[in-house]
Design a protein around this nucleic acid. Structure first.
Lengths: 192, 192
DNA sequence: CTGGATCCCTCACGATACTG
DNA sequence: CAGTATCGTGAGGGATCCAG
């Protein structure tokens, strides 16, 4: 079937055959935060055509990375969730996202920010050492999105709402926030 | 230029735009072990067409992941090497390779094993805790490839030669080897 | 011989429309 | 809501050719 193989007996090559196709890791990213319906996934990945999303879901299921689950009534329907094997990708997804974030420049007009990517970014940048002894709640607003981050016992949690743009707060807590969620500085200047 | 964008202001999406194209991470993998010429890369990735390799190298260079370097005489020519930013991918490459290795099944007839992938596999599976107090050398032979792994002060090193198939050694040391380089068991049975 | 560039073919991707 | 059908485009694949 798959003639588009790398032809290498190698863990990395095999991994790329499982989740290396276009859009695949972004689907995994959105499923890291929990099961989602087809339409939820499509909302989070606006630019993916539905046939491609459909194809990727089938491939990821065949690869043992995700699983289809029938939702119980009343919200009957289908949801997709990571298998245990798929969940093991979370670490790689966060690290790769962190690596990419180092060379992120200003957003293009077409770029959107999704709630899921924002929550994942908070998780990826969280600095547990800076969170010892701290109990606090932060509210992060980007465009329409509002994310609440609770920090407790050196671990972050998060919740979501919808709202509008707003910036306010105690400057000291902002400093604290910057310590808690930190992206190491980029070691080079990326070209345009 | 790049209309094939994910349209997300997100570290992961950006990372995938830099190194998510087909073959890109395999090129990075081979460069993790040091600078290589165009022909060396092509030898390690037999099934990549030269125009694709050429295109990927240009893209990775534009992305700030690799760098062209002119080789000094007498071996004049061009070599490609990871930038500092590119080197930061090593961890992700190893982890993703480890993840993929968990669902690796028997090699297809077309699959090849390269020296580089073997060395990377040893690095990825190395268990430092098991290596305390141990000083030893292992020789691993797969097909034509021979890899020497030295373990010293809880860290591995490696060297390479060429040879033929051979299996021999002290059984106790084999046990020790298995402890040192371990892939956690697969949590599921991957479909064909 | 290295280090690619060029040509051509095929198929996966992507846009859009449509259906159970 | 959850996809399938259709179709055009462009990237990947393979072979060949070319310059230093």
């Amino acid at each position: 079937m798959r003639s588009r193989t790398y032809g290498q007996f190698c863990g990395l090559a095999h991994a790329l055959e499982l989740v290396g196709e276009r859009w695949a890791l972004l689907i995994v990213r959105d499923l890291v935060l929990g099961p989602k319906r087809f339409t939820d996934l499509h909302r989070g990945l606006r630019r993916i055509p539905t046939n491609i999303l459909s194809a990727r879901l089938k491939e990821l299921e065949a690869a043992g990375v995700i699983r289809r689950r029938l939702l119980p009534r009343p919200a009957a329907g289908v949801a997709y969730e990571l298998t245990e094997y798929g969940q093991e990708l979370e670490d790689v997804v966060l690290r790769l996202g962190l690596w990419g974030a180092k060379s992120l420049r200003d957003p293009l007009p077409v770029d959107i920010v999704t709630t899921d990517s924002l929550i994942l970014a908070l998780r990826a940048t969280f600095q547990p050492e800076a969170a010892r002894e701290l109990r606090a709640g932060f509210e992060l607003r980007v465009g329409e999105i509002v994310v609440h981050a609770r920090v407790e016992h050196g671990a972050p949690g998060d919740a979501v709402e919808s709202g509008s743009v707003h910036v306010a707060g105690d400057p000291d807590l902002l400093t604290r926030f910057v310590e808690l969620f930190r992206i190491p500085p980029a070691p080079f200047a990326a070209p345009a």
